[in-house]
Write a protein that binds this DNA or RNA. Sequence first.
DNA 1: AATGAATGAGATTTCATTCAT
DNA 2: TATGAATGAAATCTCATTCAT
Lengths: 190, 190, 190, 190
Amino acid sequence: MRHKDEHKQKAIIDATVKLVNETGFAAASVAKIAREAGVSPATLYVYYKNKEDLLVSTYVEIKRKFGVAVTREYDPTLPIRDKLARFWRNAFVAIQEEQALFQFSEQFARTPYADLVPPEVMEEYFGPIFDTLREGIRQKIIKDLPIEILSVFMFQPVMQLANPKICAAFGKEPGDVDLAFTLAWDAIKL
Amino acid sequence: MRHKDEHKQKAIIDATVKLVNETGFAAASVAKIAREAGVSPATLYVYYKNKEDLLVSTYVEIKRKFGVAVTREYDPTLPIRDKLARFWRNAFVAIQEEQALFQFSEQFARTPYADLVPPEVMEEYFGPIFDTLREGIRQKIIKDLPIEILSVFMFQPVMQLANPKICAAFGKEPGDVDLAFTLAWDAIKL
Amino acid sequence: MRHKDEHKQKAIIDATVKLVNETGFAAASVAKIAREAGVSPATLYVYYKNKEDLLVSTYVEIKRKFGVAVTREYDPTLPIRDKLARFWRNAFVAIQEEQALFQFSEQFARTPYADLVPPEVMEEYFGPIFDTLREGIRQKIIKDLPIEILSVFMFQPVMQLANPKICAAFGKEPGDVDLAFTLAWDAIKL
Amino acid sequence: MRHKDEHKQKAIIDATVKLVNETGFAAASVAKIAREAGVSPATLYVYYKNKEDLLVSTYVEIKRKFGVAVTREYDPTLPIRDKLARFWRNAFVAIQEEQALFQFSEQFARTPYADLVPPEVMEEYFGPIFDTLREGIRQKIIKDLPIEILSVFMFQPVMQLANPKICAAFGKEPGDVDLAFTLAWDAIKL
DNA sequence: AATGAATGAGATTTCATTCAT
DNA sequence: TATGAATGAAATCTCATTCAT
């Protein structure tokens, strides 16, 4: 018997991301995704239970990738501010480098589909960030507020800044990222 | 598509928002929207040219409503910080009060459909906000950065904070909103 | 608005019966039925909720027709034997005249679909037959056995005899039917 | 398709019968049958040419089994009535013991597939029964009618009586079967 | 012999829209 | 204006079967 073809798996995910980004969730049909991926629509059902499974799995996989990218080179010995700065810069770079994946995840996250993803999954991928914020609070460096709220001020802006559709002007000059981080930091620091 | 039966018009918009929120754009079919609104599918085409027109019009209408709500009681004589604080609070209250409309607009905005809406429309609704930021820069009260970037730090967080799915803990206590505004202000103030 | 087209309704039922008889339940697809009926597959779903509804409704309708035909000219004053003879002859004629409908119902009845039909429906259509058998028992003309068992001996044979595939030789000669009824009567009479 | 793995062969037949009985011919797909049997869909094609072959072979095999069961302990020296009584009782017991196989064969026999089975095959399995009826006619013990018609009156009822779905009340008491045979015998005896 | 992967063809059903009233 | 009927096109998914191992 044959083995599952890793190449096909990747082609399907890429096609899904591309089509959803270009045409939206509503118009991204299984047939079109399959054609884009160069496989038969039936083949898609060898890899995924159904369309929902395809979309949710793709989302989770993307979130995992970003989780890895953002927490890359995590150094627990750094000062709080530097740790957060690294996460911030990592996030900015990752989003810039994988615009398509990011756009997909942003679109997906606003969809009712998103409720199907268990929250533990997300928690796992971004744990170090939350830990760092908690540590900052304990050390009285960061304002004593719920983690979700601090996260919103710290990381929501970077997601917009890295999106050239929204902030075309941003990120071209060296120093832009450090400057923007300062704003985020100013928001949450004590 | 004007002045036919206002009551039916509203029923259709409400049904559209409800269905898109609950089932997503892909599953919100004309037939289901019509059933939810208590009219025939054909009736829908009396009010809107086609499905795209229905969705885009609904979005623009929602944005208009939020524009009005956010810039309500605009007082040009107030200090910069107080003007922004009012926008902020208005936004928070408006989102809280019209969760469904807000959710729809968030979902819609990430859709390729959103590109069909001319940017001037948005500019018109939220003009006073941009003016205020520009004025703050001139007065050297706010950091001298592109308006889009300041907007991101100032208003992106409130959109998340007002969403109980993301920040369940927020907004229950009096003072929450003022406190949160302080964070946003700290980010952009000089 | 338009009205539902009785002609189309009938065309769909006829097409269903024809295709199921000729190709079996498995091969009788909605598309083929629609084509045979001269309507769009989508139109079929205006009249029936889904394929199962189409098949079950068709079956119930056929049973109703046969119920009417078998109990036609029911005369409560006749002797038991004559009443049963009339049911018997009616059944034979009805089956002969509507071979296709009968074949469909026979095939359907052996299908798991048949369990979806509530038994009261059948009871209603064939009530007079059961009443007559009960009366015969009371009058000590018929063997005192459960109605189902008597029914089996009385009416199962006629269903086979009227089927030319099984009994090609039967029913050509006048007197065949009366003769065959005698066998059924001999089985259940005291 | 002979003598590979008898165990697998049996598993496939059992799965076929089970699925056809529970979900009908239309829904009994090769994939589901294979899963139920615990083999790969491809394996099925080692044993049978195609799906049709699987179904027809299963039917013929079941008919063979019932033929053997019904004519078991055939004693040519017995009187006509006793020979038929034995066939009758054998049939009743066989159907009762192999409800699933019987249900499958009943369902299959009404299907257009059934026309693919050459009639000689059936004749071979049930030959002794037909011989006995012919003998009875010759001895002027049984009514002089075509064999098919006598068969219908003699054996159609037992097929229904042994089906608990139709005759739930029947067969529980000792003597039920003998009593019922009397009815069948009364129908055809001179 | 046995199998999981792969697929073209086709299944059922729903879609957005128009028609006739 | 308002609508239920009607439909071609397209949706998702499963089918029986073959392939490569």
